[in-house]
């Protein structure tokens, strides 16, 4: 990706330096997804030498390169047909704007799967994806320290849904598996992209969404 960006900006000789800086930034924050979720400004300022045009190209290339997990589309259709409306829980750091203004809802829109989801829940607030209506009770919470899940448990409780009826599917132990499990949720560790090894707290493991569907079929 950085090779393409450098070429499009006429900075072919800088490609190796951009790549090296991105690797260093990854070591500062641990994972590429952590950079993208909360420190994207540093890709422009540190990696790309403050070149805003290059950053715009980065955004476009990033979306081009993002694929869809095997079986995801089939799973989304199937789960919706069974009357279950999944929501997305993300550690988004950027202020919640209209649909398409962050990389996650932009991705959902581009892939044509946004209608399969009910809410986009983040530390910036909860948004109903069909109406863009925002609920700011979640503001300032965090997936990692569990406060976002505390708010979610309360929110769902008001709708008559208990933690035992909730299922979280995610790949990171610290944000997707351990905190919801501690609150009584069922958890599926998805290992199809990021595989950190099996987390003991996970109830199930799946390497694609065909396996996720098989697990959910047994649970409902």
């Amino acid at each position: 990706m950085f090779g393409d960006i450098a070429k499009l900006r006429g900075k072919q000789e800088e490609a190796a330096r951009f790549i090296q800086r991105m690797r260093r930034l990854k070591e500062k924050y641990g994972t590429i997804s952590k950079i993208k979720e909360g420190h994207k400004d540093e890709i422009e300022s540190f990696v790309l030498d403050g070149d805003h045009e290059a950053m715009l190209i980065f955004g476009e290339k990033e979306q081009e390169l993002l694929g869809m997990a095997p079986g995801l589309l089939e799973f989304l259709k199937w789960v919706n047909e069974h009357g279950i409306r999944p929501s997305i829980v993300s550690e988004l750091k950027k202020t919640l704007g209209p649909v398409g203004s962050d990389m996650i809802t932009l991705y959902l829109n581009r892939k044509g799967i946004i209608d399969h989801f009910e809410y986009f829940i983040t530390p910036q607030g909860k948004m109903k994806l069909s109406t863009e209506e925002q609920d700011l009770r979640y503001k300032g919470t965090s997936k990692e320290n569990g406060t976002l899940y505390d708010e979610l448990v309360k929110d769902l409780g008001e709708q008559g849904i208990s933690p035992e009826e909730c299922l979280m599917i995610g790949d990171k132990w610290s944000t997707d598996i351990k905190p919801p499990k501690q609150r009584g949720w069922t958890t599926i560790q998805y290992t199809g992209h990021i595989d950190m090894g099996q987390c003991e707290e996970a109830d199930y493991y799946a390497k694609d969404f065909y396996e996720v569907q098989d697990i959910v079929a047994k649970l409902i």
């Binding site: 090296q20 800086r21 260093r24 070591e27 500062k28």
Partner: peptide
């Protein structure tokens, strides 16, 4: 490197 600085990388 010092806290908040981006680490260096030797490949």
């Amino acid at each position: 490197r010092p806290e908040d600085e981006v680490p260096d990388l030797v490949v």
